[in-house]
């Protein structure tokens, strides 16, 4: 009996590190040491807070979703990524915080460099994600926690600060997104726009240098989308480095410093948003813009 119990209890506990409930969680984290490329630790250089993607390739089976894409986001810059669905925009964005592991290429975020060819240690992954906040199309708030706890819990677990301190900061951030009065509610009682603003507060609470937005308003009706966009505009005005995958063309044009147009896993063209909106170089860009703007 004793040995059976040992088998049932102890063995899984010992190898807890191998436990995986979801095939995508955590993204492949092989055990070997990460090989750092020369001169690439947490360097607080002029490129701090910036993203550099080099020759990124991501396949799902035989399907190449991101095909040899290189892209930069400078510190304090807002980059909007637009393009038809299936263009690989979201996948590209998810490669920045390694929610998707690229099959080849280099991800350089906040001075931490990851080569797709080299395994990433859990420690490096944690370091990367501390620098990068992410907002999802489907909000992904924790439904069993109050709004306040949603914003406070990650701080406690990631930054290791006390509950009181985390909740004070959570209140400040909720106030900032205009939802202080919702602190004691559960997310299920909030509108989509409110949930998305809470999700933004939750990400900001960890003090990221870069914020990724994956179609943050696509699940919202237009009116509710506006309140989310307003928060994002504010954030951009404060100098946050942002990469935004969006179908909001006004936002892309007005707020972004740099526009990236993607189709079929590649960048069609990129540059000044006004220039691209008024005079796109590529016929495919023109076709896409006409389709989205003429409705």
């Amino acid at each position: 009996m004793i040995s059976l119990w040992t088998a049932i209890w102890i063995v899984p506990t010992l190898v807890c590190n191998r436990i995986q409930f979801d095939p995508d969680f955590p993204p492949e984290v092989p055990v070997s040491e990460t090989k750092h490329l020369p001169g690439q630790t947490d360097r607080p250089s002029e490129s701090a807070g910036a993203v550099r993607l080099t020759s990124l390739v991501k396949r799902f089976g035989d399907h190449v979703v991101v095909n040899d894409v290189s892209m930069d986001v400078a510190a304090g810059e807002v980059v909007a990524i637009i393009g038809p669905s299936g263009a690989g925009k979201s996948t590209l964005l998810r490669c920045i915080n390694l929610l998707e592991r690229p099959d080849s290429g280099i991800v350089d975020v906040a001075g931490i460099q990851f080569d797709a060819a080299t395994p990433v240690s859990g420690k490096d992954l944690a370091r990367l994600r501390r620098h990068v906040g992410m907002v999802f199309q489907s909000f992904n708030l924790f439904p069993h926690l109050t709004v306040l706890r949603n914003v406070a819990l990650p701080q406690e677990r990631v930054l290791g600060i006390s509950r009181t301190e985390a909740e004070e900061k959570a209140i400040r951030l909720l106030d900032r997104v205009g939802l202080k009065d919702k602190a004691k509610q559960y997310p299920g009682r909030c509108s989509g726009g409110q949930q998305q603003r809470i999700a933004i507060a939750r990400a900001l609470a960890l003090g990221p240098q870069i914020m990724l937005f994956d179609e943050p308003t696509s699940a919202l009706d237009p009116e509710l989308g506006l309140e989310v966009l307003a928060v994002m505009r504010e954030l951009a005005a404060e100098g946050m480095t942002m990469a935004v995958v969006t179908h909001e063309m006004h936002f892309a044009r007005d707020v972004s410093d740099h526009l990236v147009v993607m189709a079929d896993g590649a960048i069609l063209e990129e540059g000044d948003p006004d220039r691209i909106f008024t005079d796109p170089e590529q016929p495919r860009t023109r076709q896409f813009l006409r389709a989205v703007l003429d409705r």
Binding site: F21, D22, F25, P27, A126, F136
Partner: peptide
């Protein structure tokens, strides 16, 4: 929902905290 795992991962939550909390 898969998004719960993804949000936890993106927030950098440690695995134990993700599972237990």
């Amino acid at each position: 929902a898969k998004g719960q795992w993804e949000a936890s991962a993106a927030l950098g939550m440690p695995r134990t905290a993700t599972l237990t909390r």
